[in-house]
Amino acid sequence: MSTTMCASCTFFKAHAANTAKTLKGADLCRFNPPVSQPEAGAHVLWPAVKSDDWCGHFEKDIEAA
């Protein structure tokens, strides 16, 4: 596994509750802000990613001492 994949990024957030058919197994990227939906009262959506995806915003996740 490469160290530049989403799963090792500080902006990666595992999202086990996501069961939507089109996003099944998808996690969340917290680098970009969530996107609002056109319907009034709809929830906002964070960008969906897979743990083995990667992008140019990668920042290595470091554990607190």
Rank of each mutant, 00 (worst) to 15 (best):
52 D>Q: 08
59 E>K: 15
46 W>K: 03
11 F>D: 04
41 G>S: 09
3 T>K: 10
44 V>E: 12
64 A>R: 08
9 C>E: 01
63 E>Q: 14
24 K>P: 00
18 N>K: 09
62 I>M: 10
26 A>R: 01
61 D>M: 13
52 D>L: 08
24 K>Q: 07
43 H>C: 03
42 A>Y: 02
54 W>M: 11
56 G>F: 09
24 K>L: 08
26 A>P: 01
51 S>Y: 02
56 G>H: 11
25 G>L: 06
64 A>H: 04
41 G>F: 06
4 T>D: 13
63 E>S: 15
63 E>P: 13
15 H>R: 04
20 A>R: 09
53 D>P: 08
29 C>M: 12
24 K>S: 01
19 T>Q: 05
60 K>D: 00
58 F>G: 02
12 F>G: 01
58 F>L: 10
61 D>F: 15
31 F>Q: 10
49 V>T: 04
36 S>L: 05
20 A>L: 12
8 S>Y: 08
23 L>Y: 01
5 M>H: 06
28 L>Q: 06
11 F>I: 03
57 H>F: 12
64 A>T: 09
26 A>C: 14
30 R>W: 00
3 T>D: 13
19 T>N: 06
23 L>H: 00
9 C>W: 00
25 G>F: 05
43 H>V: 09
61 D>G: 09
43 H>W: 00
36 S>K: 15
47 P>N: 10
9 C>Y: 00
6 C>W: 01
38 P>G: 09
51 S>I: 03
33 P>R: 07
48 A>W: 02
3 T>P: 03
5 M>V: 12
61 D>T: 06
21 K>Q: 10
31 F>I: 01
65 A>M: 04
35 V>S: 03
45 L>Q: 15
60 K>M: 07
7 A>C: 13
14 A>V: 08
34 P>L: 06
62 I>G: 06
22 T>C: 04
9 C>P: 03
50 K>Y: 11
30 R>E: 03
61 D>E: 14
13 K>P: 00
34 P>I: 02
44 V>C: 05
29 C>I: 11
18 N>G: 06
53 D>M: 12
5 M>Q: 11
36 S>Y: 04
27 D>Q: 09
8 S>W: 01
26 A>I: 00
4 T>N: 15
2 S>P: 14
54 W>G: 14
49 V>L: 07
34 P>C: 11
3 T>S: 10
8 S>Q: 12
14 A>Q: 14
27 D>R: 00
